[in-house]
Design a protein around this nucleic acid. Structure first.
Lengths: 150, 150
DNA sequence: TTAGGTGCAAATTCTTTGCACCCTG
DNA sequence: CAGGGTGCAAAGAATTTGCACCTAA
């Protein structure tokens, strides 16, 4: 579990408090500890893992508060989700090396091909983590259908 | 919903039959229709959507068969999942522009930074789909911890 | 003070499983 | 014909929600 530097954590906590204040959201003990947990560790836990970790410090914490808070933080833009958020598993029959454009508004995920992307050189920092299998680029944006309206 | 060309579909169906045969997996009517649905449309449906579509042609189809078949096809390498497969939603408190290395074996997802990735030029084919917000690179591979063993 | 937040438990939603019958190879 | 595959229904997980009490602002 990669730890975030104390300086960075402090910065994140400040940012968190400011965003909550601006949004008119109360700074409860529970929320503080949940966000602190997220800000302190660099891994990408699911709700249950956050719950178990925070509970050590706050034994009265309940799982549903963790869920509610995690989605609140997401809505506030303080954290993001890995992969599809609030969606079920989706399947893809395209076995060719391809990349995805994902509309953050409607969820449309469209394949596209690009030789340059396929040929992106792998940086040394990644070699340090493990051996590379596939490189996939995900572009997030707004599709024309959604962009036209709002 | 982007349609796949008939030639490509035919190719995929052939590939499907061959893989099933080699794996000693039976070619049932249900599996054929589920795979055909996946091979024909270029969108990335979830299990329930596949179920509803296939049911129009095969009214006796049941949702649990769709699930079983989708995972079977995934295990056979005929389809893949978008984002985390068989995992819950994970959260990320890192708001800096970063990329992910994901170990396909243990699920470890580690952040890394790379200026070159951040600066990748967006191809025209993507401009045609929509406006770009963020570009994120996901590298899939085996982390050193898993690589050493098996 | 008071509106929003929490904990509990129950409800939902999504996915998996046990079992008897069916069909492919 | 045999063993895997399917449909049904029921179980299991994961996540959300209703409600009464609590607490930050």
């Amino acid at each position: 579990m990669s730890q975030i530097s104390p300086t960075e954590v402090k910065q994140r906590m400040e940012c968190y408090k400011e965003v909550c204040h601006n949004a008119g959201v109360k700074l409860t003990h529970q929320r503080l500890e949940i966000y602190r947990e997220m800000a302190t560790t660099g891994d990408h836990p699911d709700a249950d893992i956050v719950f178990k970790r925070v509970r050590k410090r706050l034994p009265t914490m309940s799982l549903d508060t963790v869920y509610r808070t995690l989605w609140l933080l997401t809505d506030l833009g303080l954290i993001t989700t890995l992969g599809p958020s609030r969606e079920r598993t989706r399947f893809d029959a395209n076995l060719k090396h391809h990349h995805h454009f994902k509309c953050v508004n409607c969820g449309l995920t469209q394949d596209f091909y690009n030789d340059e992307f396929d040929a992106i050189p792998i940086p040394d920092s990644v070699q340090a983590i493990g051996s590379v299998d596939v490189t996939r680029v995900e572009i997030r944006g707004i599709c024309h259908k959604c962009g036209g309206k709002g």
